Simulated assay, not measured.
Amino acid sequence: MKILIVDDTNTDRLLLKMYLSKLEHDVIEAVNGEQAIIQYIKDANELDLILMDVQMPEMGGFEAVSKIRSIQESRNLEWVPIIFLSASAEAEDIDEGIRAGGDDYLIKPIHQKVLSAKMLAMQRIADMRHRLILANNVLEAQASTDHLTGILNRRALETVLDREVARSKRFESAFSFALFDLDHFKRVNDNYGHDAGDFVLAEVVKRVSQGLRSDDALGRVGGEEFGVVIFNCVGKKARDACERYRQLVAEKPFIFNGIEIKTSISVGCVAFDIKTDSRESIYKKADVCLYEAKGAGRNRVVYQE
């Protein structure tokens, strides 16, 4: 495990570090509560356990742990177990420690066998915690991913768009939003079957993805319609980006079971106006531009400042 030891007494801290190093744990140190908070913020995603002394100058262990738990909650960080270390065996102190956010309480001086047994138990908890984090990450990815194309689904794309709208209004930064769909896609399904249609959708995503910058977000809105959040980009650069997507799709046919299938996309793109726009309004504007592109003959881009 990666363990943070917080203790202002050098001998106690070094003794703990020696014991834990012998048990092959990775140990980092802090000498007071304030330093513990700084170290926690730095290593929050890697820590498996915090051993926190109660009696320390400036900021004691109870206060430091209370602040660490507040940081966890406000930043939506993963829970990390915390064990208090104290020379006091008073029931009131133990109660206060658990209420402050601690998960266990060890009395100093700590016997080496007791520490070893406690670390074995904490290792089991750490292993279980890692499995739960991995499982949650998988579930989160499944909930935000379109199963056919592997890109963001509509809900996840709208979340990205919401964040970018908020960021743009706060920092007065520019971005564009594009909607595109496949021209005459129904003909693909009718003429070649739904397997061919699914193949073309997935291949269109691959081609468009080649034209995306690393920061831009592509998502499937539904059916054959897709959206792109084009960060920090408006005007000619945003229009050129959409032209790049269009050309990548139209430049050559798709080959499905030896059959050539030609398709193209129509694109509607708008720049976000920080004074008047919202997520809903920019979405509607992009949709209007998309229908203008289709009405003008398809396989083209309509961009609106």
Results as ranks from 00 to 15, higher is better:
Q123V: 02
A121S: 14
R124Y: 06
D127Q: 13
R124S: 11
T145E: 01
Q123A: 13
V138F: 05
A143T: 02
T149H: 04
N136Q: 08
H147V: 13
A141K: 13
R155H: 14
Q142V: 00
H147D: 10
L148Y: 06
V138C: 01
L120A: 13
M119G: 02
L139I: 07
M128H: 13
T149M: 09
I133G: 00
R155K: 13
R131I: 09
M128T: 12
A143N: 07
L132C: 06
L132P: 02
N137R: 05
L134S: 14
N153I: 02
E158T: 09
L148Q: 03
L139C: 04
I133A: 13
T149P: 07
L148N: 02
H147P: 05
T145H: 03
N153K: 06
R129A: 11
L139E: 05
M122W: 00
I133L: 12
R129Q: 15
E140I: 00
E140M: 07
I133T: 09
I125V: 15
Q123G: 13
I133C: 05
H130N: 11
R154C: 08
M128G: 03
D127I: 14
L148W: 06
L148I: 03
V138M: 06
E158D: 08
L132Y: 02
T145S: 04
A135Y: 04
A126Q: 12
M119N: 03
T159Q: 11
I125G: 05
L132Q: 14
D146G: 04
A135D: 09
M119I: 15
R131C: 06
N137Q: 15
T149L: 09
L120C: 04
M128K: 14
Q142H: 02
N153P: 08
N153D: 13
L152H: 14
M122P: 06
D127H: 08
N136M: 04
M122G: 02
H147C: 03
A143W: 10
L152Y: 12
N136K: 07
M119T: 01
A135T: 08
R131D: 13
E158Y: 09
A126K: 08
N153A: 09
Q142I: 00
T145I: 03
A135C: 00
R154K: 08
E158M: 14
T149D: 12
D127N: 13
